[in-house]
Simulated assay, not measured.
Amino acid sequence: MSVANADLPLYGELGMTFMQWPQVTNLERSDAEVVVTGVPFDLATSGRPGARLGPAAIRQASANLIWEGARWPWSFALDDYLAVEDSGNLLFKHGEPQTLVDNLEAHIGSIVSSGKKALTFGGDHFITLPVLRAYAKKYGPVALVHVDAHTDTYSGGSRYDHGTIFHHAVQEGLVDHEHSIQLGIRTSYTVEGHPFEVLDAAWINDHGPTATLERIRARVGDKPIYVSFDIDGLDPAFAPGTGTPVVAGLTVDCALKLIRGLQGLDLIGMDVVEVAPAYDNAEITALAGATLALEFLYVLAATTHSLGVHK
Rank of each mutant, 00 (worst) to 15 (best):
K116Q: 08
N89H: 06
V142C: 06
N205E: 11
A278S: 12
P277A: 01
Y226I: 07
E172A: 12
E85V: 02
A276Q: 04
Q23R: 15
G140I: 05
D200Y: 09
D148W: 09
A201D: 11
T285A: 07
N89C: 11
V101C: 04
N103Q: 12
Y135S: 10
V84R: 09
H168P: 02
W74N: 03
I165T: 14
L90Y: 06
P224I: 04
P40Y: 03
D222M: 00
H94F: 14
A57Y: 07
D222W: 00
L78N: 09
D42C: 04
T210H: 13
G15E: 09
W72A: 09
I66A: 14
V246R: 02
V36S: 08
A106F: 07
G157Q: 11
D148M: 11
I185Y: 08
D161L: 01
D230V: 04
E214H: 15
H146Q: 11
Y154M: 05
L129P: 09
G249V: 01
A288T: 05
A61R: 11
L43R: 10
L199S: 10
L265Y: 00
I127A: 01
W74H: 07
A44I: 02
L262I: 04
T304W: 01
D206C: 04
Q60R: 15
A202V: 13
L174C: 11
D280N: 07
T242M: 00
Y139Q: 03
A77G: 10
T120V: 15
L307W: 11
G15C: 02
P277N: 05
L100E: 05
V24T: 15
H194A: 13
H179D: 01
Y160G: 01
G50E: 06
V272Q: 06
T45D: 05
I225C: 09
W67D: 13
P240S: 01
Y81V: 08
E13V: 12
N26D: 15
H146M: 11
D200E: 08
D152F: 06
